[in-house]
C-alpha cells in the first residue's frame, strides 16, 4: 500500500512525525498525570517538540551553520528559527525553574504535589470558610 509518493512523503518528513509524536506524548502527560513534577516533565517534552519543529524548518539540506565563511557559494541554514529557539530554550529553562519552585511552595503548603489531592483540600477549605 506504500506507493512511491506516500512512502516518500512519510519518510521524507520523518522529523515532523517525530515532532508530532513527541508533542502528543508531552501533552498527554500534562493532561493525564496528577503529579505536578511529571506535568513539568510533560511540559518540557512538549517544549522540546516545538523546538525541534522549528529547527527542522530552518534546516536546509547541505547547508552549514549560519556562520559567515567568506565563500560566496556556501549554503547556510535559515538562522531565524535557530535564534528564536535559542531564546525559547532560555525561556523554557526559566519556566521550568519557576514551575519547580511553585511545586516546592505547593508541597510546603499542602504537603502533596498530587493535583486531585490539592483540589480536595481546596474544596475542604472553601466549605469551612463558607460554613
Amino acid at each position: 500500500m506504500f506507493d512511491d509518493f506516500s512512502s516518500s512523503f512519510i519518510i521524507q518528513h520523518y522529523n515532523y512525525w517525530m515532532v508530532i509524536v513527541l508533542m502528543m506524548v508531552g501533552l498527554y502527560i500534562v493532561v493525564s498525570r496528577g503529579n505536578l513534577v511529571k506535568k513539568i516533565v510533560g511540559l518540557n517534552l512538549f517544549q522540546t517538540a516545538v523546538f525541534m519543529l522549528y529547527i527542522s524548518v530552518g534546516k536546509i539540506i547541505g547547508g552549514t551553520a549560519p556562520i559567515l565563511t567568506g565563500n560566496p557559494d556556501e549554503v547556510y541554514s535559515n538562522p531565524l528559527p535557530h535564534v528564536l529557539i535559542l531564546t525559547a530554550i532560555v525561556v523554557g529553562v526559566a519556566t521550568t525553574a519557576l514551575g519547580l519552585a511553585l511545586i516546592v511552595r505547593i508541597n510546603e503548603r499542602y504537603g502533596t504535589i498530587e493535583e486531585d489531592e490539592i483540589a480536595d483540600i481546596e474544596q475542604e477549605i472553601d466549605r469551612q470558610e463558607s460554613a
Binding site: L27, V30, V31, S32, R33, G34, L36, K39, E115, D116, A119, E122, Q123, D126, S130
Partner: peptide, 19 residues
Amino acid sequence: PQGPLARSWPAGSMVLWIA
C-alpha cells in the same frame, strides 16, 4: 466566589480544555 467557574481547576483539565 463559590461558583464552579471561579474555582481553581486542576491544571490537567485546563490544558485539555485549552487544547
